[in-house]
Design a protein around this nucleic acid. Structure first.
Lengths: 238, 238
DNA sequence: GCCTGTTGTTGATCAAAATCAACGTCGCGT
DNA sequence: ACGCGACGTTGATTTTGATCAACAACAGGC
């Protein structure tokens, strides 16, 4: 689905997305630029090294950002959830592929219009900057994981991360989300953690056998003790 | 050495650093805020999770950004060269340790003063944004390396990257720098590539034996064929 | 229902890199 | 010159995770 006009007033991510930087009259302007898109899993949103004609806020769903080597080896370099912003402002080409992992609702903006708006309203550019800083933090945190953590620590870290993101996406006031659905397949988790499918699967059963998690039908995870899992993910004792 | 006043006019990185966003009168303001620092190898510039009281431009030398696990495992999450900017604007705490790798000349600015300036002169904030986007690109490129490349590909990638950065730091008009000094020890290279010292050493001798590089006294590398090395780093054929 | 393709698990074996260990080299202080 | 410590290389062995292979669970099409 493409091109449907959006009402920012009723937007689910109005106060968490980059749009939160805008005041009433500014939002009106943005409103006129916004178009909704609904994408199925697997839909390609941006392609590495190619120009993208639009930016987007994720209204709902999960998007993976990937990079590949010539022979097909793939690495997920970012996971984006509801309220996250897609696209590299002020860059001609996308530095990665972006692909819908679940059904994804996007609110898209034509590149030039949006960059013009960002130049006009400094708060909007500042908000984009903040989002980029968050992405950088996440990337560097993940570098530590990819370079130095064991398979078990990687899988535990992944679960902790997903639980945290699911929490902020949902509307859970306090405490941890302990039961959640994984947005990624085993193959995608492997591409995220720099492992193989088989190793990911084995670490899941290990965590299950050790009583740290329960698994319901491959995609649903119940974390018994989030702090314990976090300890495993950082190799505190154990 | 701390606190010496700097003259921006004669600054070696005046036109490549974030300062290039500023015009004559603005630079004058910045001039009044700048203090020089000369740090020896090993000097700690920022500490993970701690507040830093200043930002800095690197005038010369190399700075490593590291993150560690509780048990001492370490990962270099960024390497910064001359003209690069140090410090996370609009963030309370540093997300990594920053440490001088060589002798390092810094041009430092007090945090609050500098952020105020960035708010006033939008071009400066924009330039900081651009630098952050570059850092993010580098981080995600490195995630692909850490997650999916073999030891040989990692070391080749490292050499290609250092050659490129050395080139932009020096004043080489065109063509590749093929002979350069490594700024990092074997241990630091290992921490950058997610390998052990021994594996790094073995891959160096392998690249040497295969005739791709020559090594002079451990720290100086001569690349025979940069394109061939780049191919190895991305696993094109062979 | 049944067939088929996709996804996930488990086991056996293999290989790449880690670990353990010894030794060489260089620079520095005395 | 000598000895020491840091750094780097090389070899032997072990370990972790990859690869190869078989099969189970499940969903969708007909």
């Amino acid at each position: 689905m493409v091109g449907q006009i959006i009402r920012c007033d009723s937007c689910a991510v109005r106060h968490r997305s980059v749009c939160s930087a805008l005041t009433r009259p500014e939002i009106e302007r943005l409103n006129g630029m916004a178009h909704a898109k609904l994408l199925p899993p697997g839909a390609v949103i941006m392609r590495d090294n190619e120009k993208s004609s639009y930016f987007a806020n994720i209204i709902s769903g999960v998007v993976k950002l990937t990079k590949s080597l010539g022979d097909g080896r793939q690495q997920i370099v970012g996971l984006q959830f509801a309220s996250d912003f897609l696209g590299r402002p002020f860059r001609a080409n996308s530095p990665y592929n972006a692909e819908a992992v679940t059904d994804v609702h996007l609110c898209t903006f034509e590149t030039q219009q949006f960059e013009k708006l960002a130049k006009e309203f400094q708060d909007l550019e500042h908000r984009l900057f903040e989002h980029t800083l968050d992405e950088l933090d996440a990337a560097q945190e993940w570098m530590l994981l990819l370079g130095r953590k064991s398979a078990e620590e990687k899988v535990a870290s992944f679960l902790v991360m997903v639980a945290r993101r699911m929490q902020s996406v949902g509307c859970h006031a306090a405490g941890h989300v302990t039961r959640f659905e994984l947005p990624l397949s085993r193959a995608e988790i492997a591409d995220f953690l720099g492992l193989t499918i088989e190793t990911v699967s084995r670490q899941f059963t290990r965590l299950k056998n050790d009583g740290h998690i329960a698994i319901e039908g491959a995609r649903t995870v119940v974390v018994q003790d989030m702090d314990r899992l976090r300890n495993i993910s950082e190799s505190v004792d154990g």
